[in-house]
Amino acid sequence: MTKLLLGRYLPGDSWVHRLDPRTKLMASFYYIGIIFLANNWQSYLLMFVATMVMVALSKIKLGFFLRGVRPMIWLILFTVALQIFFTKGGTVYWSWGWLAITQYGLTNGAFIFMRFVLIIFVSTLLTLTTQPLSLADAVESLLKPLRRIGVPVTELALVLQIALRFVPTLMDQTTKIMNAQRARGVDFGSGNLFQQMKAVVPLLIPLFVDSFGIAEDLATAMDARGYQGGDGRTKFRILQYHQPDIVAGLAMVLLTVGLVFLRA
């Protein structure tokens, strides 16, 4: 379970790893935005090449990215199928009642498939090369302007940071409680769905109670160490843009120009 949540990050020292997390976060969102500009083979080819360059720069094996596509594959195929069967226009290759496979349908289906895969690749690239903690820092830094309209950004960031920090602790706790309940005869992971759900109750309740205990202890410790809310604190971890971040930004601009030039 730990792998599921935190194991996505692959430690490394590639060009992509060293980018500022804010750059990566913004670039990923920007990329997902501009991919909707692509509307013909040439523009999709450009996006494909650009994505492959990013993947190559991360020095992470392609297999990790393909694994990112797998959980989404049914959603992708369903959407592609809708496109293929319901887009009308061009040469009709096959038809049955109101269903028809047309030329436009096929190209649209292929484009949608491409768009999905590229978006997944880019978001996978973000999570594989950026630690969750750095992402939290990036979100805090980027949302800072919202403080002016009263959003408690620093507090939320601290909550997020503490949540990330306590994931392994709670995992340990879960294992401990599971073992303790097993010793008392609870059978996890067997029986029908209803029985399995019932087995989770003696796990969840102690975990829930424990979490409150931990929260109370933690709050006391934070109080004792002088925590008085988010205002007026200095920060130990700082984010700094470097030259590669400028390069990455320029690359995004060039990609946009290329797309606008190539699209139909």
Partner: peptide
């Protein structure tokens, strides 16, 4: 339950922050 920071150095820095 008193380890606030995500890493050792972050935790030591917490009180200073």
């Amino acid at each position: 339950n008193q380890f606030v920071g995500a890493t050792v150095q972050d935790d030591v820095a917490f009180g200073l922050e």
